[in-house]
Design a binder for these strands. Structure first.
Lengths: 209, 209, 209, 209
DNA sequence: GATGAATGAGTGTTCATTCAT
DNA sequence: GATGAATGAACACTCATTCAT
């Protein structure tokens, strides 16, 4: 009994470590080369396992990319939900979110999300229900940010004459990896600096005064 | 011989018309399905020619997509150059550009540009020299917008305390198709309305007072 | 116009010849090695074309085997229908059928039919509708032979005390390739001799007196 | 050491029971799905052991199927030998055999034998030496039945003008599972009824009367 | 002995590209 | 020039077999 109990968790731990390694590696390769240019063989080689091993963890190439994307989506939505649930003012919520996203950005999760979203084939992943939520990821995200904006308008913090959807869209464009990438790599901005500049430009534009 | 000489300009005209038709069709299909999901066969069928005919005009599938992208890039850069060369104030230049881009947006050129730009394989197309210009498309674009921003700062129209690269980046994020698409399709904004809202938010944020 | 009209039928003829060659070759290889042991590559190599060419004619490996089987089934049913429609006595119909089948047997069509029928996966092919007929092949065949047997019973030619299904089943077992193969190869019987012996044994058993 | 000696016979018994269970299960699965459609994994799961355990008993998938087939072949040959050795008349021997086979038929052993025999790859199993016998299974079987037929001819019970090989072949076709399956399943014949009908048709045809 | 995770050869299928007609 | 049949490299996926635990 002891042996069994000692063995199984060990195996299970190894299994999870390997799965995490596959996810990480695959995420990196997908990001470098794109979905179609990446072969299962390459992922396997980089992980240091045989092709078949990948299929012990994920039923198909699409399933693998789905798992990666879902993981990012869940983390993303969680961050936004946390911000919404916090006791900050709407403006502070936006700023906090920008900071958190620009920090997370370095973990490359959002980059893949955006990268794949541009691929029409992958786009529907974001438009299907995800995880435990019944709503498509993208809708859930929009609703959460809309909530913040509306609260800001109600609190006279944001300009009520501006259409909420436009304000929401601009928020999403601010966090697009494309926006940040150049600024990080070429100009050496830190996430904090960047989040601060973006928030400032965003707010001055939407503030009521 | 005479016949040949008479035919040649006609033939040449037909050739160019066909090439234009291929470019248009391919652009549409690439946009609908993405680069990899699009087969040469489908483009040929939609154009109404045989697969081989495509190869009489473009050496490879990649060459075809390059030609499309270059065409869009040249048109894009031309628009921006026109704006820069105009006698408008920096703020008016930005607003004019936004309007022109959001109008053009319906012609879907920019969408493909962005869509492909997300594909790592395609990204380098935007980072290579393009057309007759020695500069990579993306750099040329950035320089032009930078020029407008700097002029605006010099004219005390824009806030000099904000870093120019950040301001430039936000301008590019404003014209991302992702920003506009939802607003057009779901909320029915017109290009003019949208350009106006975006410009307003952008300016109030970056204006000096 | 002339050129087009001359070309197309030529192409079409070549296409059909090649398709026939693929069918023939595939039939032979499937028969030699069985369905699973046969790779598309081997068929292509034996035909002398590239693997892709096979797929210009048949959408999948299963489609290829279906086409072969259907061809045989249609020919088989036709033979039986011809016999049923003829003006012979029921006994003569059975004998004619045996002869025709044992002649055709050398063309190996029936062998593949039986060989695949033993494969549970393939069996359902024989139990689905085939060609233009709404009935599964196997049912159609059984009905036709049942018709002959019943007619023979009605004409007092066959023993009415024997159950028709048993009589039908034995007819089918008489034409199983397994029955004939050894007799041909090892004992050198001709199809005519064999058909005659089988008919004789079959009749003396089922005749009324 | 003692413990080992006490355990060994027990272990050995368990080993044999498990092996028998694997054989039975594998036989059933092979029959349901065919050789190639059956994976070692499925057999292991159905037996309730791990995949590796199968390989402790059989060196390969082919070895496993060989063992099954050999077991059936040995049992089959034994039945026929018993009949030959009995004191019955040749006619009674045939009838007894038919009955015994049609009873055994329900145990599905023969069905697999026939099913696999249609697979060219498996066919050679029946044509190699089997078990302790130096003769290929199929030859041994043919010789035994030939012996009965010849004895029947010598005893003036069977028609000497018919070629013995043809008579033997028809006997084998009578016991083909294909013959019986439909009659069992769709018409509800019992093994005894069926054996009786078949024997009657067979005899009236070959008897000298 | 028993396990089942890991392996990697093998195969069906697709599709950009070529070239004979 | 235009065609579209032919090609074959490339790749996702399976599964019999092995072996560390």
């Amino acid at each position: 009994m002891q042996k069994v109990q000692m063995h199984t968790p060990l195996r299970e731990k190894q299994r999870q470590e390997r799965e995490a390694l596959i996810l990480e590696t695959a995420e990196r390769v997908f990001l470098e080369k794109g979905y179609h240019e990446t072969s299962i063989d390459e992922i396997a080689t980089r992980v240091g396992v045989a092709k078949g091993t990948i299929y012990l963890h994920f039923a198909s190439k699409e399933d693998l990319v789905k798992a990666i994307v879902q993981r990012s989506m869940v983390a993303f939505v969680r961050d936004v939900k946390d911000a919404v649930a916090s006791k900050l003012t709407p403006g502070e919520k936006i700023e906090t979110l920008l900071l958190r996203i620009y920090t997370r950005f370095f973990r490359e999760e959002i980059r893949l999300l955006y990268s794949l979203y541009s691929n029409p084939e992958m786009k529907r992943l974001a438009e299907e229900e995800h995880g435990h939520s019944a709503k498509p990821f993208i809708n859930e995200l929009i609703e959460l940010v809309t909530e913040i904006i509306e609260a800001g308008k109600a609190a006279k913090e944001f300009d009520s004459s501006l259409p909420t959807p436009v304000m929401v869209s601009i928020f999403f464009c601010l966090i697009s990896p494309r926006t940040g990438e150049r600024l990080f790599n070429e100009y050496g901005f830190t996430p904090a600096e960047l989040a601060s500049h973006l928030a400032r430009i965003y707010f001055r534009g939407i503030s009521a005064h």
